[in-house]
Design a protein around this nucleic acid. Structure first.
Lengths: 331, 331
DNA sequence: ATGAAAGCGCTAACAT
DNA sequence: ATGTTAGCGCTTTCAT
């Protein structure tokens, strides 16, 4: 059985309350008592019981995190950023790993809620807006990384429209006019990127062309095949994420289409994959650390003052130009 | 304030104890009471308080997970496997994200321990054996993915020696005799892979050559540069993981060395990166799902019966041959 | 089948 | 500066 405050108190010859004070670093404790108590705790290998503590204090220092797809490296980055920020703010994280299907998201949320979390960080949740709103009504919540936020819920996201605009500007600057978009499917963040692309194309008075993808390399490969099979090879492809982009590139390479000689390719996420020398994918880099920090900040603010209207913060992204984009091939 | 069992009891016109029984699905409750209580709970939006429950029952259904590097995609896969297995076994997961430096691992463990976890899953921890043993003495623990287990601690790992043997066999079968290994540095899993390589080379009576790396693409790039600069280009490179392998490949490509024409490259982890059409890296595929399932199984067994001697399970790996390995160039 | 009562390990007034 | 006391929401004997 693990030692309790009672054991420490007995060993130190003081009351339980004093031990509690010492453990919480209260100021009005004599240095002498502090020493004795700490020594006793150490000797016993005492560790505070977080359950008992939060039960008694009604104060919780844990955030729940819902991750849409743990196997997607981008979420690793994002999670890492949230974790760092939470850590700095003195919060622990309880993680519920999502599945690609989104089927289990509800069950995960239920589990998380039973664990007395102070707030919930939702990393690109696939839940429908109604569920999202119900959740936010139950516990302070912040959505991270959806470009198309749900009304009434705190969210921090990348300004997808601006980012897409930058991508298209970059390509147009290189002489491209035939720019195809490989979408990420029906999920929310994907939609935002597609909308950004459409807006940017419209701004340049260019004809958009969208091929369906699904945020995976396989989906990108399918899209790549469709593009090649269509007979109308664009001069550039803008993919909804890096995985899709490399999927497309794999097909192009196999088909003997030079990148960026004949077709330029742009990804999104600036993942580890994009950065590999071998790949050198031009990609949109989200301000991941800032996304995480802002998420924690918004959540803390909401907990402190639940009444305020929902806040949406859009963070800028930057285009990391690498080897997969170049001048458009002569028309 | 969230509704408690007391609220439910009051609304249902029964005692708190009855509500508790219903919530835990006890059998000796009249169907009528069950209905009434469930209805009241539902109407109130009642959720059991996991802290209070574990405090009272002294039973915990949460495992702590320590992840060495969340941004490494391999850990996403591994975590996912553990999560699935834990879920099936009825456990929640509390995750402490590690940092590459390993500096914060101790702090993370402390936090996890305060949260009343039933057991700890350590994903390739960087802790020293002594710390590991101390931890295992405090809470049931299982180490996952270290090829070189620490005595006295339950572990499940890939049989690195056998895997390395397969890799070297594959290369030797293709006529390679000059096979260089890019190591993963001083961390435990890296050492196991290096030892496996050395053993396999010895078995084939081949001269080993080891270049230092560190499990990252950057480290692989450094190693690649060192190999090229040495003037003695091997016919094959066996990297400690996929990231290092692509790092090496990036350098080779930049130097105009054909892969696999002049140099074959083999990775380890069979990560998403290896599988990309664009990369097509021959890689050692670990039985990730089985690793996760076994970890949970060992942990459950240890909790049920803490006295038994430590168990080490070594799982087989398979070599996924792709495009980066081919016949050795003529000597 | 249901209720009453004690207590899990801790915090938080309130004393002193 | 330290001790006393009463809970936090729940489970768990023990009665009935």
């Amino acid at each position: 059985m693990r030692p309790t405050q009672e054991d420490v108190a007995r060993r130190a010859g003081v009351s339980r309350a004093l031990v509690s004070l010492v453990m919480r670093g209260a100021t009005n404790v004599s240095p002498e008592s502090r020493r004795t108590v700490l020594a006793a705790a150490d000797a016993l290998g005492y560790r505070p019981n977080a359950s008992a503590r939060s039960l008694a204090s009604k104060e919780v220092r844990t955030f729940g995190v819902l991750i849409h797809d743990v196997t997607n490296p981008y979420f690793g980055l994002l999670y890492s950023a949230v974790a760092d920020a939470a850590d700095r703010a003195g919060y622990d994280l309880l993680v519920g790993p999502g599945t690609r299907s989104g089927r289990r998201e509800a069950a995960l949320v239920a589990t998380l809620l039973e664990h007395q979390i102070a707030g919930m960080v939702l990393l690109s949740p696939m839940m429908r807006p109604a569920e999202l709103r119900r959740l936010a009504a139950t516990v302070p919540s912040v959505v991270v990384g959806i470009g198309d936020p749900v009304t009434g819920i705190d969210a921090v996201t990348t300004d997808e429209v601006r980012a897409s605009r930058e991508v298209v500007d970059h390509l147009v600057g290189l002489g491209h006019r035939s720019i195809t978009h490989v979408s990420g499917g029906r999920v929310r963040p994907a939609r935002a990127r597609t909308q950004g692309y459409l807006a940017a194309m419209a701004a340049h008075d260019l004809e958009p062309r969208v091929v369906a993808g699904d945020f995976t390399a396989d989906g990108g490969r399918e899209a790549g095949r469709a593009i090649v099979a269509s007979g109308e090879l664009p001069t550039a492809v803008v993919a909804a994420n890096d995985l899709a982009a490399v999927g497309v590139m794999g097909v192009l390479e196999a088909e003997g289409v030079a990148v960026p000689g004949e077709v330029s390719v742009v990804g999104c996420d600036d993942s580890q994959i994009a950065r590999l020398d071998l790949v050198g994918l031009t990609s949109v880099r989200q301000a991941v650390d800032e996304l995480g920090a802002t998420a924690v900040e918004l959540l803390a603010a909401r907990i402190a003052d639940p009444g305020t209207p929902a806040v949406v913060r859009r963070l800028g992204a930057s285009l990391e130009v690498r080897r997969t984009t170049g001048p458009a091939r002569p028309g």
